[in-house]
Design a protein around this nucleic acid. Sequence first.
DNA 1: TAGATTGTTAATCGATTAACAATC
DNA 2: TAGATTGTTAATCGATTAACAATC
Lengths: 218, 218
Amino acid sequence: MNDFNDSPISISTQALERMPYYLQHLKQLQKEGITVIASPAIAADLSLNEVQVRKDLAAVSTSKGKPKSGFIISDLIYNMENILGYHNVKDAVLVGAGYLGSALLSYKGFDSCGMHIVAAFDIDDTIVGTELCGKKVLPVNKLSGMCRRMNIHIGIIAVPEDQAQTVCDQLVAGGILAVWNFAPVHLNTPETIMVKNENMAASLAILSKHLQEKIKQS
Amino acid sequence: MNDFNDSPISISTQALERMPYYLQHLKQLQKEGITVIASPAIAADLSLNEVQVRKDLAAVSTSKGKPKSGFIISDLIYNMENILGYHNVKDAVLVGAGYLGSALLSYKGFDSCGMHIVAAFDIDDTIVGTELCGKKVLPVNKLSGMCRRMNIHIGIIAVPEDQAQTVCDQLVAGGILAVWNFAPVHLNTPETIMVKNENMAASLAILSKHLQEKIKQS
DNA sequence: TAGATTGTTAATCGATTAACAATC
DNA sequence: TAGATTGTTAATCGATTAACAATC
């Protein structure tokens, strides 16, 4: 409850990725008027291992949990949001204002994570200049200039695969450091750039594959 | 190159999730007219560890690689698509025809993975009955009936969070076995149902968090 | 043949799970 | 006090990386 984002012990990658789920659930509980929760209860609710939850909570919580009762929910929420950086505003640009771009622009959840999409870019002249979900659509030739001028570090690529590399190069030229790529191609970037690939089709296919295996077993 | 999807040795979850990236890249190489590739080359192209790639290829390939030259690309592609089940058609239903639903419906990549979205459902009377990306939008009250009648096993939830649980219950009632959930809530389901959560906001936030850590280090 | 690449066995690493004493 | 839950140390598990002989 005290200082800022000074995460002392580093949290494992996997634990970090579980945090949003804990957070979601804790906020739900809070909405229902519950103020204190113990790790075995969370584990049961989210179908996770008790020890895992206990360790995850211990890793993020600044205040200690009380044996028998557990943790104060509001404290946990604060700590988790802090660890995840939800309390700082982080700007991003979106390239590609098609269906997927629109979906991302309209996504309410970004705000509560401190993520802010500053502007959308597109090459299509018929939509450049219009507004989409309350944000101006700008021409791609302004992309790298704007990133640099506004000191933006995150770029989201939601363009067809044959344009993705070009867009990526422009983002890099604009000084972007991290790319969230929805185009199903491998992007070539300098080693310093962080790329997170999101392949919708592959995700669904893998879900289906896991399902098949599960059916086969039983 | 011989028999069907009879994956003898089970492939690790993580390896399976790398397959679509290999596949993407191999198809690209094939398009460029290349017919043979060695694992160190793939590793270099995709910035992966050489041994990892070698093991992954060995795990899926039915034909052996030749020392010095490597693997025949067309064989690898066939094997990977087979492992991932791209050669079978798998039906799915989509619930929620908003921006995100539209993005998923219009997504070209599903076809090549053998995934087929049969229909979209929504509660909004103003869009029920219309066509979206070439697919009829049906009323949600037909959801579970249609799933059962058509023997569909996969449901995609792209509705606001407060409707997600209801929709999920209807999918389960319709006999669905796997759920791809885009709503930021934990869904309560029978243990036999497979749920894959996709939290856009959290994904972006975690990317940003990793970026912050990387900046801090250097 | 010499050298690159293969398949495979062993060593390392990281994360999950189990065990247990400390505490409200 | 008794019992549930905590924090922490140790054991297990799975995946990645390293090492090396076999081969085209």
